[in-house]
Design a protein around this nucleic acid. Structure first.
Lengths: 198, 198
DNA sequence: CGGCACGACGTAACAATGTTATGGGACGTA
DNA sequence: TACGTCCCATAACATTGTTACGTCGTGCCG
């Protein structure tokens, strides 16, 4: 009952297939969580067979890699307004908000939720680009810093925010009900030396 | 050929079986990584059948829970000397050292390396105890802080150190070769307001 | 001392997973 | 019109976590 739509779509539209699988994967991830993240389920949701995942992504690992890229692009877009406003605190806040809105997506990227999958080359390249935006923003906020100093500060900011969010998302927070409040406090402490007097 | 040792040990020594499985799980995890973390492989390494994992731990999730407890105890012991010396920087350093020495163990606990497993009640309780030691230490270093202030500082320190280590361990570091240097720098920035003038 | 119940354990099966071999069928090109 | 080259579905493979069943040994009660 699933292959009855094959007659109207005479052109295979190869990119449509790839896009459909990727969208289906993200939808399944958001709806059923990491447990439902199955090649068969994804293929079913995309309206194709499991082979499609292998022809377009080379396997589950390749699909996860594409999900990395998708994720970086998505929260780059989410952080863009904060960057444009020159507000690092807001950027950190948006980072957490994105993670809470897409918990399984976030955990697939940074928490090894899909076994035996490490970030591939494409994912690392895209992640580096995403990080570079943070470095640029640090330089914008603090023009007195040298390039490598800005890099180190960005690394520090990223690691700290990342740690807060991941602690909360993996259920390891020691004060779950105060997670937001503690995050805000942490942002203050983290960014005070950056926005305060040089 | 595996059951030939059954005659000398007439009492089944129930705790021996449990301990053997747990040790085997940790050994397999360290030797073969998260990919080899299989009920069958663990049982084989422990010299028993797969059923043992279910009678003693109730399944794979229960085994992971026991691994949580084991992990917290292990790095509590690793941090103890630093705590005794009243050195928070050294404690942070030991935290990272433990994670690098037991990467897969660490990722199972904090990175979802085993699918569909969230920290159970026992794990959370043990984690909280481990965190409490950090709170106590913060109070020791800074007796002027109130209990809840110390808690918030400990939360901040933990999240930050956690973020650094996890970024490095999941292969998402933007400067892998400088990971140690950046970690040390981060520790300085993080702990300066704690050890400096109140 | 003997029989019995209970719990631990191995064997073997189950459903579900990622992956791959096989084959068919649609498109573009000569 | 015939051919080659992809794309894709069907079906099989090995391996995973889990469970039902039968068996054996231990410890308790008569």
């Amino acid at each position: 009952m699933a292959a009855d739509v094959s007659s109207p779509r005479s052109p295979p539209d190869r990119h449509g297939q790839r896009r459909a699988i990727l969208d289906a994967a993200l939808a399944v991830l958001a709806r059923e969580g990491e447990a439902g993240f199955t090649v068969r389920r994804i293929a079913e949701a995309a309206g194709c067979s499991t082979t499609g995942v292998y022809t377009w992504f080379g396997g589950k690992a390749g699909l996860v890699d594409a999900i990395f890229v998708e994720g970086f692009e998505s929260f780059d877009a989410a952080l863009e307004p904060a960057y444009a406003a020159g507000d690092l605190v807001a950027a950190g806040r948006e980072y957490r908000r994105w993670a809470l809105a897409n918990p399984t997506h976030f955990l697939v990227m940074f928490g090894r939720a899909v076994p035996d999958v490490r970030p591939g080359e494409e994912a690392l390249r895209r992640g580096l680009a995403s990080f570079q935006r943070l470095v640029d923003h640090v330089r914008l906020v603090r023009p007195d810093l040298a390039e490598d100093e800005a890099f180190d500060w960005a690394y520090h900011v990223n690691a700290t925010v990342h740690g807060y969010v991941l602690t909360e998302l993996t259920g390891m927070s020691t004060a779950p009900h105060r997670a937001e409040e503690l995050f805000e406090l942490g942002l203050c402490r983290l960014l005070a030396p950056l926005s305060g007097s040089p």
